[in-house]
Design a protein around this nucleic acid. Structure first.
Lengths: 114, 114
DNA sequence: ATTATATACATAAGAAAATTGGGTATATAA
DNA sequence: TTATATACCCAATTTTCTTATGTATATAAT
């Protein structure tokens, strides 16, 4: 009935948001960017990343473009129009959840203080 | 290798933290408290809550005490000593993750600004 | 030479955590 | 007598992640 998604899948939101900021990225690049942004504290594993990318593509959120770079294959992902809409939705959802989490977990916060 | 738990289970942290603040609570009370604290936006389902409580009890984080109230059975949960330690650990972990999440998702934030 | 590390993609088995949909029971308000 | 609230529980299924593995190229180290 109600949708308390929690953040069981913040990975999708991370992927979409990075692609909103970067126009196009390939999988390995995403893992490195996240590692860099979090000082190595969050490591996106390939076993989680690639299935997530494939799912987002299958859902029409991303398109791909394969490119050769130094004899190695890169698969670049970009947001579709639906994907662009989805970023906003997912970000709102996530920020709302984090806000609610703080209301629960922050002892300073008391009900009735909006 | 590395442990980027993400928040796949913020529910455990929520339960432990509420019990840190309240000495003892029963399951139904937890669902109502969370609903109240988040203006109805987060609804803990019973299918998620009870298994989580049983798991925490099995792990030695919680103890239970059954009590009759108005002909109805209530199962009160309290933190054990291990549970009390675990609250701090879980809270640190969660706050760290939320911080990292913001570094990834907040476009204002740039690497190198600590 | 060859071993290790980095780059770059992918899949598959299994675990963990949630949703969904039941089931039992009492009390009270419509 | 029907619906809602209180109060516990479990099982089937789904989703998401971990762990392990496989393929392949490039480069630095021993």
């Amino acid at each position: 009935m109600s949708n308390n998604n929690l953040i069981k899948g913040s990975l999708q939101t991370i992927i979409l948001k990075l692609l909103e900021e970067n126009e196009r990225m390939y999988g390995y690049e995403i893992t490195q960017r996240v590692k860099e942004l979090t000082a190595g504290e969050i490591k996106i594993t390939e076993g989680a990343l690639y299935p997530a990318l494939h799912k987002l593509e299958a859902e029409g959120m991303l398109t791909t473009e394969i490119q050769q770079v130094d004899n190695r294959v890169r698969k670049y992902y970009s947001l579709t129009k639906n994907g662009q809409k989805e970023v906003s939705a997912k970000m709102t959802e996530l920020q709302s959840f984090v806000g609610n989490l703080q209301r629960i977990l922050d002892p300073e916060w008391k009900p009735g203080l909006a």
